[in-house]
Design a protein around this nucleic acid. Sequence first.
DNA 1: AAATAAAAAGATATTAAGGTCTTTTTTTTC
DNA 2: GAAAAAAAAGACCTTAATATCTTTTTATTT
Lengths: 144, 144
Amino acid sequence: MFSRSCEYAIKALIYVAQNTKDGKRVSIKEIAKGTDAPEHFVAKILQELSKKKMVMSIKGPNGGFYLEEGGKHVSLERIVKEIDGDGMFTNCVLGLKVCSEKTPCPVHLEYKEVKKNLIRMLENNTISDFNDKLDSGKFFLKNE
Amino acid sequence: MFSRSCEYAIKALIYVAQNTKDGKRVSIKEIAKGTDAPEHFVAKILQELSKKKMVMSIKGPNGGFYLEEGGKHVSLERIVKEIDGDGMFTNCVLGLKVCSEKTPCPVHLEYKEVKKNLIRMLENNTISDFNDKLDSGKFFLKNE
DNA sequence: AAATAAAAAGATATTAAGGTCTTTTTTTTC
DNA sequence: GAAAAAAAAGACCTTAATATCTTTTTATTT
């Protein structure tokens, strides 16, 4: 569904949100460990997100990553679009260059509904939502 | 959503279905041209599908590909599973090794619904359905 | 000011997907 | 039986995604 990079991005943002509630910051090393992601790879991804202000970063000792107030309300949709682009939102499911309401491919109508659901899910779920879920103890970010 | 290979596979099967109604056969060359796919690449994919009897093939002059009677009723789901595997059907959307009803990741519940829709679409749409749609003149496989 | 800790940036390596080219096998037709 | 047409098989190439390693920049602490 999403690229590996995108999975890392989502997990990293969730991790940052979870672990900087008290105004602390977390380092790439921590994030990588906490999300089972390769350190330098996730560093690249955080750089990107940081350029787009989806996460804040401070260099130097005691530096690290944290979220701005609004940062927790970033939706899955924004993360996915940032990392994987909007192909999933706009492209024909068969990869056809020409596929629209006027000239639909044979899968178009059926896929439209699925896509609508998918997009709604991506738009309506934010880092903050996931935060709450994890806090409730009923949801997990486990990898083994 | 699907891999390039999978897109080619779906389009190829549709093309074969559309063009062998009168007991004819179509060659890889024709299929590749007709679906804007690279010839040798689509050949590989058809070989795979052929091994799984999802399409029939005959060598030699006047040979080519065609579908068995039941062949038209193959669903998108079978094609996707054959080419891309069942990752889309079974994997956690965040790529977590541990994610289930008992230990759900924070996206699990929301994604479950989307996935249910997606799978239903894949199961309920067959080559034959697409065939009918294309025949109706209201659907297209256009690439420019 | 020096040492240190952290992210940023850049260079390089690895893997998997996508794609091409060549040879082999099978079948048909003449 | 020779020539030709087609798929099958295999070798190889290219590109993009993934991953790692090294250097640089920035900020902090002592």
